[in-house]
Amino acid sequence: MSRFDFTLAVGDDALIAAQRLGEWTSRAPEMEEDIALANIALDQLGAARLLLTYAGELEGAGRDEDDLAYLRDDREFRNCLLVELPNGDFGVTMAKLFFLAAYQVPLYSALAGCADERLAAVGAKARKESAYHLDHAALWVKRLGDGTEESHRRMQDAVDQVWPYVHELFAPDPAAPVDPSTLRADFDATVSAVLDEATLTRPETGWAPGGGRDGLHTEHLSYLLAEMQVLHRAHPGASW
């Protein structure tokens, strides 16, 4: 991936994750969790804005963060499939957030030390926020996994359901500012430690769907984009 494609991919991950997490607002199982998910969504949106703004500058075609967020179709998005999957129940949402954060923490840490100053600044900032997200998601995974029989069953189901989608995150790419394959060991160590404590089983590696980085998405992304983009497209340039 070129620097533009990479920045777009990392920014799209954050943007789509923000949109999905935002769907929980006013619907979370308790008020504290409602606030937590909205705050995490806000952090993801903050990182997305910086990354998409920079991607637009790298591209040099005059597109800003809004053009990239609101005026691209599904085939032009480069986010991983993991973030576009529906929220499912609370267990699925936590499994998705846990795997995403376990990937974003080493990713942003590596970016913080990369040669590109703009990406390094975003990495240094976002890794602190992602560490907090990871902590939060890990607490829930443990609490549900090592909870009641029902919560354990549903958390394990969630992990099994989401797990195939993590492999796409680590597809080797030596040309990218950070080669995603170098983040896998860190991710695996985090995941194993938390799942062990949660009395959950890590699924065997098998089916590994991918394609998000090439713009080949699940049908879920189109519906998400329709909701996210409709206002901007109906009223171009509107402000309030």
Partner: peptide, 13 residues
């Protein structure tokens, strides 16, 4: 701690 997140991004309850 009641909640790890609060009324603004920088606060917990």
């Amino acid at each position: 701690q009641i909640s790890r997140f609060g009324s603004t991004a920088c606060k917990a309850l």
